[in-house]
């Protein structure tokens, strides 16, 4: 019994000892290798990466924030290429890189459709895949072949939760929107564009219909009928091209949103709408216009009855 116990005891000591020695040898080897093979990372890459938002939205056309940080550090891309950056962070990165931060108006998503479900004509029940992508493939779901379908592919694509679908129409929260452009690619009808916010609020065309006036009227209550009243009021900013109103956003001609007031109130279908950080729902402008119209009509009617009454009294 004794020799067996002795042998067991010897194994008990020699086994951990041997493994420990082997482990130690490799530890030393790896430590040396670690120092010899250390990779020097540009400290600016780390610093820039930390200043970036880290949402990996891809708005800069790089796969993610890591790659963009490397591109910025190697002066391959300007820091402003990150559309999400706020002024403060942009300045921070500019300081890290020792360059001037360029102050350009930030881009924001604009929905070029302004019709709620009840304003779109000829809508049929659609029971397919509940995405705009799927709905867009089905003919005849809605009379307007240009306008919003309202199933919210853009809202799903938004990494910043800046789009909300209200009664079949996306509403952009311009405080949360960063202009990354994910919604632009998600919309199968291509009615979302990025516009430079040269003023806040900004006048936009809330329609994409390139149909002639009669066809647009038949398919939508608030579609652009290319009447050209806006272009007549302010020809330097507005123009009608392909049966659709267009706005020239060049800062020299556009100047301030307030200047466009004359044209905006002329629009009979309320296609010219204001969007911006202070406007929660641009569609309210339609309701407001309707209220104004109703008030005007009421006033006119009241004046008429008064006139009639006076005429009667005279007679």
């Amino acid at each position: 019994m004794a020799p067996l116990a002795l042998e067991f005891a010897s194994y008990l000591i020699s086994t951990p000892l041997t493994l420990l020695v082997i482990g130690l040898v490799f530890t030393i080897m790896l430590t040396i290798a670690h120092h010899r093979l250390q990779v020097e990372v540009d400290p600016r890459v780390t610093a820039v990466r930390e200043a970036l938002p880290g949402a990996n939205c891809g708005g800069c056309n790089y796969p993610g924030c890591d790659q963009f940080a490397e591109a910025v550090a190697s002066e391959e891309a300007p820091p402003a290429a990150c559309v999400v950056l706020g002024e403060e962070a942009l300045q921070q990165i500019a300081d890290i890189m020792g360059i001037e931060a360029s102050a350009e108006a930030p881009k924001r998503a604009v929905i070029h459709c302004g019709a709620h479900c009840d304003e779109r004509q000829g809508r049929t029940e659609y029971r397919g895949d509940s995405t705009c992508l799927g709905m867009n493939l089905v003919a005849g779901v809605q009379a307007c072949t240009y306008g919003c379908l309202g199933l919210g592919d853009c809202a799903d694509a938004c990494p910043f939760d800046a789009i909300e679908i209200v009664d079949g129409l996306p509403i952009v929260d311009y405080v949360a929107c960063t202009g990354c452009g994910n919604c632009v690619g998600a919309c199968p009808r291509g009615i979302i564009t990025l516009k430079s916010m040269i003023d806040d609020p900004l006048v936009v065309v809330a329609c994409s219909s390139r149909d002639a006036a009669k066809a647009t009227r038949a398919s939508c209550k608030v579609g652009c009928i290319a009447c050209g009243l806006c272009a007549r009021a302010r020809p330097e900013t507005f123009a009608v091209k392909n049966d659709l109103c267009t706005i020239d956003y060049t800062p020299e001609t556009y100047k301030q949103t307030g200047d466009q007031e004359a044209a905006i109130i002329k629009c009979p279908t309320v296609c010219l709408r204001l969007v911006g950080t202070k406007i929660l729902d641009p569609h309210e402008q339609v309701e407001e216009r309707e209220r104004e119209k109703a008030a005007k009509a009421a006033a006119k009617a009241a004046a008429k009855t008064k006139k009639d009454a006076e005429a009667k009294a005279d007679a």
Partner: peptide
């Protein structure tokens, strides 16, 4: 593997 990883990274 650790060694190879360091070598490749470098």
């Amino acid at each position: 593997v650790q060694l190879v990883e360091m070598y490749l990274r470098k």
